[in-house]
Design a protein around this nucleic acid. Structure first.
Lengths: 188, 188
DNA sequence: ACCACCATGTAACAGGTTACATGATTAA
DNA sequence: TTAATCATGTAACCTGTTACATGGTGGT
C-alpha cells in the first residue's frame, strides 16, 4: 500500500466524484464538466490516465462491465483507502494562490503595444466572465437541492464573485484606456 | 531566424522586462518578484533556462560582464526581433481563463470532511488576500510614476479587485458554515 | 450518407517545480 | 563565525495538453 504521497488535484477530483458512486472514465469526464469543470477541467486523456493510477494506489477498484449494442466499460469504485486519501488530501493546506495569469501579463506590458490590443483582450475576458455567470445560473437551477451546508453552491458563489470582480475591472480598464487619454491618476 | 512559434508566458515576461533595459538572470529574478511576481512568479531556474533559449531564437544577445569582488555576470539585451516577438505575443488572444483552482476543489468536496477543515482553508486564503492587498499598496507607493496609461497600475487594480472578491467570498463561506447550522438556503 | 454519442487509450511534447551543486564577499 | 547577497546553472520529476487511433450504434 502506498503509505501516501499526496494526491494531485486531478486525482483528488476524480476520487472525490467517485465517492458519490462508481462510474467509468467516460462518465467521470461528463461529471467533471457538469460540476467542478469551471475551476478544474482536465482533458479526458488525463482522466483515463489517472484512473489506473488510483487502482495501483489501492484507492479504487476496477470492474469490467460488458454491454450489448455499445462498447464495454471499465467501471471504477472507490475503496476505503480511497476515502481516507481524500480526507487526508482535504486536511492538507493548499499551497498559496495559483498566481499564473497570462492576461495580466499582457496588460502589464501593454505599453509595448497599442491600447486597442489590450482593450480587445480585456473585453474578451469580460465576455467570458459574463458567460461564466450565465453558466453558473444554469448550474444553480440544475442543483437547487439543498438546505444544509451545500458546498458546491459555495463554489458557485465564488465563481460569481470572481466574474463580477473581473467585469468591474474590465470596465475600469476600459474607462482608463479609451476616452481619457488625459494625464490623470485616478487612484481609486 | 525562428519564423516564430509563439512565446510561452515566462519567455514573454522575461523578454518584456528585458525591454526596459539589459540585465542578468539574477537581476531579472528580482525584477519579476517586484513587478509581475504576484500574478506570474517563475522559479529562478526557469529564468536561467529561458534566457539561453531567447538567445537561440534571436530575441536577445548575451554578453559576459567580468566583475571584481563578486561573480561574473551574463547580461542579456533584447534585440529588434525580440521586440517584434513581444508585440506579436501581445496581439495574440490569450486562451480562456486559467481555471485551475485547487482551493475550490477542496471546498467542493467539503462534505467529505468536517466544516472546520474547510473553514481553515478559506480563512487561510482570506489572510493571503489581505496580505496581497498590503503588498499592492506597497507597490503603489513604490511606483507612483504616472500620468498617461499606467499599465502596471491596471494590474494592481485587478489584484485588489480579486483580493476583495476573495475576502467577500470567504466571509460568505464563514457565515454559511459557522453558526448557521440551520437548514437555510440564502441564495444571494 | 453522415454525424453524434458511446468508450478507451497511447505518444509526443510543453512548461513548470524542487533539489542539488558551487563558491566568493560582506555585514552582524 | 555565521548568515545573507551575489551569481549561474543542471537533473530529475510532475502534471498536464494535443493529436492520434479505433470502432459500433442510432438518429436525421
Amino acid at each position: 500500500m502506498g503509505p501516501g504521497r499526496q494526491l494531485a488535484p486531478t486525482e483528488a477530483a476524480v476520487l472525490g466524484l467517485l465517492a458519490y458512486g462508481e462510474s467509468s472514465g467516460y462518465d467521470l469526464k461528463r461529471a467533471v464538466d457538469r460540476s467542478v469543470g469551471y475551476f478544474w477541467g482536465p482533458a479526458k486523456s488525463r482522466i483515463y490516465t489517472v484512473l489506473p493510477r488510483l487502482v495501483e494506489l489501492g484507492y479504487a477498484t476496477r470492474r469490467d462491465v460488458v454491454q450489448r449494442n455499445r462498447p464495454n466499460k471499465q467501471v471504477y469504485r472507490i475503496t476505503r483507502a480511497g476515502r481516507a486519501a481524500i480526507r487526508e488530501w482535504l486536511s492538507e493546506p493548499s499551497g498559496p494562490t495559483p498566481d499564473r495569469n497570462p492576461l495580466l501579463l499582457k496588460v502589464f506590458f501593454g505599453d509595448q503595444a497599442d491600447p486597442e490590443t489590450v482593450l480587445e483582450h480585456v473585453r474578451a475576458r469580460r465576455a467570458q466572465a459574463e458567460q461564466l455567470k450565465r453558466e453558473l445560473d444554469e448550474l444553480d437551477r440544475a442543483a437547487c437541492e439543498g438546505d444544509d451546508a451545500d458546498y458546491p453552491a459555495l463554489t458557485r458563489v465564488y465563481g460569481r464573485e470572481w466574474a463580477e470582480a473581473m467585469i468591474r475591472w474590465a470596465n475600469h480598464v476600459e474607462r482608463e484606456l479609451t476616452h481619457s487619454r488625459t494625464p490623470k491618476s485616478s487612484r481609486k
